[in-house]
Amino acid sequence: MNTKRQFDDLLLGSIELFCLAAELASFTAAAAAAGVTPAAVSRSVARLEERMGVRLFVRTTRHIRLTDAGRAYFEQCRDALAQLIDAERQATGEQSAPAGRLRISMPTPYAHYRVLPLLPEFRARYPQVQVDVHISNRNIDFGEESYDLAIRGRAPDDSNLIARKLEDAELVVVATPGYLARAGTPASPEALTQHDCIQFDLPSSGRRIPWLFTDAATGKMTGRPTDGGYSSGGDVLGGVTLARAGAGLFQTYRFVVERDLREGSLVEVLPAFGGTSRPFVLLYPHGRHLSLRVRSFVDFLVEKLARNSARQAS
């Protein structure tokens, strides 16, 4: 057994300052957060680079960015520090108090209509957790960006990610009463060829997403291409806004237009062919240690969304 110390107090402090600089992309910001001087942060990083014989940052006069080796080292160090913090809290009986910064990426509709309204309740339960939300419909790269979690509309073909389903979100076709009075109400999916169907282009591929219907004969879900004079790319809420303005028919998630349907500003079309859905999944890297704050958020979100699904089913 090797009894020689691998890390002294100075080295552990250097690792902490390096992680702060990597998270904040600034020596100055890291110094302010840690209550030390920027020179102390710079010396700590230099100490680590000398120890390992690799460059951790590319430095310019105004910016710093991680090298490939630096990013790999940062990912490992961040998880290791999180494990140390959790171990200390467990040993001292503070395991029930999650703390720290949680970074999560999620798509626009799910952010605005599902997750953001829940965050005040989450922080009331766990006030020591700070939540950074990145709202975008593009797929993030966990290896390149320092996110703890991501929510996406489907599980990616990436064996390095763990996908946990949050819900199957029901789809609905809607239009304004004014549009239907002007263009008529389609009686079947085949009749959509006579209508202005607002298109949505997938951010990842630019491919137009087909509309999903339940086949009356088989009861199975089928995809149907549609066409129209409007398309929205990048943000599915653009199609919802167009539909609300009377531009045509649009298929979207029921949770996005629930209020419109209740108030009558939008009308559900083709309900006999409905009942289709698309999944939303929670993603995180395989093998990454999940800190207490991340596990607490995952459990909270699954709990709240399960209640939403139960209310909708009833």
Rank of each mutant, 00 (worst) to 15 (best):
H134Q: 03
I135Y: 06
L102F: 05
R65V: 00
F18A: 09
A46I: 06
N139L: 15
E121V: 10
R89P: 00
D132K: 04
A31D: 04
A31L: 06
A46C: 07
V54W: 08
L56K: 07
L119D: 09
F74H: 12
Y73V: 14
L81A: 06
Q76Y: 09
F142N: 01
E88W: 01
R103A: 15
R59T: 07
A25W: 05
R103C: 12
P107R: 02
R103D: 04
D68W: 09
A34R: 08
L116K: 07
S96N: 11
V36N: 02
F27K: 13
R78V: 11
A39R: 15
L102Y: 04
A99L: 12
R164Y: 00
P117G: 09
F142E: 01
G143D: 02
T108D: 13
R89D: 15
Y73M: 15
Y110L: 12
L84S: 09
F57C: 04
A163D: 02
P117V: 10
R138G: 02
A31N: 07
A21Y: 02
V131Q: 02
L118D: 10
S146L: 14
A97S: 14
E145M: 10
A30H: 05
A69E: 13
A30R: 05
N160P: 00
Y73D: 08
L161T: 04
L20S: 05
L116P: 05
Q130W: 02
R101L: 14
D132A: 13
Y113A: 08
I162F: 11
A22V: 11
S26C: 08
P117L: 02
V129Y: 07
V54Y: 07
I135G: 09
S136F: 01
S42L: 04
A40G: 05
C19A: 10
Y126G: 03
A32P: 04
R154C: 06
P98W: 08
E121P: 01
E121L: 11
I140E: 00
L161G: 07
R65D: 06
A22C: 07
S105C: 13
E88Q: 14
S42H: 11
V36D: 03
L102R: 08
Q76D: 13
A72V: 11
E121C: 03
I135A: 07
A25Q: 13
